[in-house]
Design a protein around this nucleic acid. Structure first.
Lengths: 304, 304
DNA sequence: TGCGGGTGATAGGCAATGACTATCGAGGTG
DNA sequence: CACCTCGATAGTCATTGCCTATCACCCGCA
């Protein structure tokens, strides 16, 4: 039984005439006759009475044709469903973002995508890189926005932007008046870091190799906002990414100091499975990134 | 798009593995891959992400597969419907019967068929032969029980039984004591006949050729029961078929007289379109006829 | 009563479709 | 690094379904 046979049978039932039905479905009359007979044989029931005057539906034919219409109806809806999903910028995109990026990027990004891809709502998952990686491979999310270094087989990345690091110290800290500090100097202070698992912690330790080996530094916080508050309360100094230090987050208890060049930075990328079919959705995110009002540098597409 | 492609896609979605899915639907893995790709191309949407680890459903894939299941479901019901109609003795039989047979045959026939073909309810239409003929050709009824002579192209008949005619006279009629009368004698009496259109009228006139030409005889009735009542009231004599003169219809005001041989009779047949596929249903009727408690003679199958 | 115009079924040739086996290339795993 | 499994590809082959041409039948008309 094929959809075509069902189409043919319905056509014959509609036209009550094999020739007209054949024209209607764009085949020759013998082909149509053969197909109808084939279906009748398969079903073991005669569907039509071929009289010399007219073609009559048998009782079985009536029922089968009615059911065939339902099949064709549902089959037509397959195409409709597929067509609706045709545009990669339509349909929910499941997006994972690490904790140190989400709160600073998402408000603007969602805003930008709402106009550039209005048919693509975001289902957002905020988590650690390692977890996002697993979810990405497992198909639980479609795209992950993480910081480099990040690579995995079967995963591609598109750079979004480069984001410099800044030192934040309490307002009454001895460094509060300095214009810039060197990464090596941080060692001398009580450096507050994120807890283990946050990539941002590792990136800072990487930037300040000197004390990566010695004992772990001061206290740890669970989010950048926690760190910020801890600094504000005078507990120590810390390092935050530039996007966490916009005007919106200005705080009189905190002083922001640049690094002496080379300024450490992180590259933020969008990662997705190589086989992910909605690349245009990733492109939409990459295209939106440089338009955002963030203190970042557009990251050139270096490894396409 | 074919049902097979939909089956394949559903199998892949179920197994999340092309090889296992191929086994499940009894094709080689390359064939299955090709079919899936073909459907994806046709729909213009990628349904699966073929990762090295596992096969993932895209969002479009989820929706298409869900719809495909519905299609296959409905398609399976086509076979169920057909199977239900597989037995020609199942399903309503639309039966037409002429007025002069219906009330005497149907009660017994329905009873007999209820046991020999319990799954075949009768939808009964009572009408004149000419109308039944049209309905039979037009497919409005499946079988017509009529009296011969009846023939038409594209129509076959099966004899059911032969039924003799009897003369009925009022109880106080001069003939009331006679054992038998000749057809020719009827001319001398006030013969009550059915109105024009009833074949039984023509058959009586045929039996008594003598006065077929002269002026029309006495009054006319619209049914055999009307005639019977008219005879009972002394309005004249009439002729009835044997099946209308069983014990059940005995009436003290009426005397039944045999014809002198050759006794006129009518052959009752079941007529159906040559193309009618449920011949077994007709056979069931033919087989039931001789078992009925009617004063008739089984009609041999003379022209098969 | 024979003759066109209609029906659906049949016959024979042909091309497209789908299936197969064998193999590849990519990844993951010991 | 060898080995295994994944899905994709290549090439061949049989089946399928299609077409044109024709048949057999029935109708209505002359």
């Amino acid at each position: 039984m094929t959809l075509q046979e069902l189409k043919y049978v319905v056509a014959v039932a509609d036209e009550r005439n094999f020739r007209r039905a054949a024209d209607k479905v764009f085949v020759s009359q013998p082909s149509l006759s053969a197909s109808v007979k084939k279906l009748e044989d398969e079903l073991g029931v005669q569907l039509f009475e071929r009289g010399p005057q007219e073609v009559l539906l048998t009782e079985a034919g009536r029922q089968v044709v009615a059911q065939a219409r339902r099949v064709l109806d549902e089959a037509a809806r397959v195409k409709v469903v597929a067509k609706e999903k045709h545009d990669p910028l339509r349909g929910t995109l499941r997006l994972g973002v690490i904790h140190t990026i989400a709160p600073y990027l998402l408000p603007d990004l969602v805003m930008a995508l709402r106009s550039s891809a209005p048919g693509m709502p975001l289902d957002i998952e905020e988590n650690l890189t390692a977890n996002l990686d697993q979810m990405l491979r497992g198909g639980l999310i479609d795209v992950a926005i993480v910081a480099e270094p990040y690579s995995a087989t079967g995963i591609e990345t598109v750079p979004l932007y480069d984001e410099e690091f800044r030192v934040v110290v309490p307002a009454k800290h001895p460094w509060a008046r300095r214009k810039a500090v060197s990464a090596d100097e941080l060692e001398t202070q009580n450096l507050l870091l994120l807890s283990i698992g946050h990539c941002f912690r590792d990136q800072i330790l990487e930037a300040c190799r000197e004390f990566a080996k010695p004992a772990p530094p001061g206290k740890e916080g669970n989010s950048l906002e926690t760190l910020r508050s801890m600094v504000a309360s005078g507990l120590g100094i810390s390092v935050l990414p530039a996007s966490a230090l916009t005007q919106r987050y200005a705080n009189p208890l905190i002083k922001v100091i640049d690094f002496l060049p080379p300024t450490p930075l992180r590259r933020v990328v969008a990662a997705f499975r190589t086989d992910f079919p909605r690349r245009a959705a990733v492109e939409a995110i990459a295209a939106a990134a440089p338009t955002l009002d963030l203190p970042v540098k557009a990251a050139p597409r270096q490894r396409p």
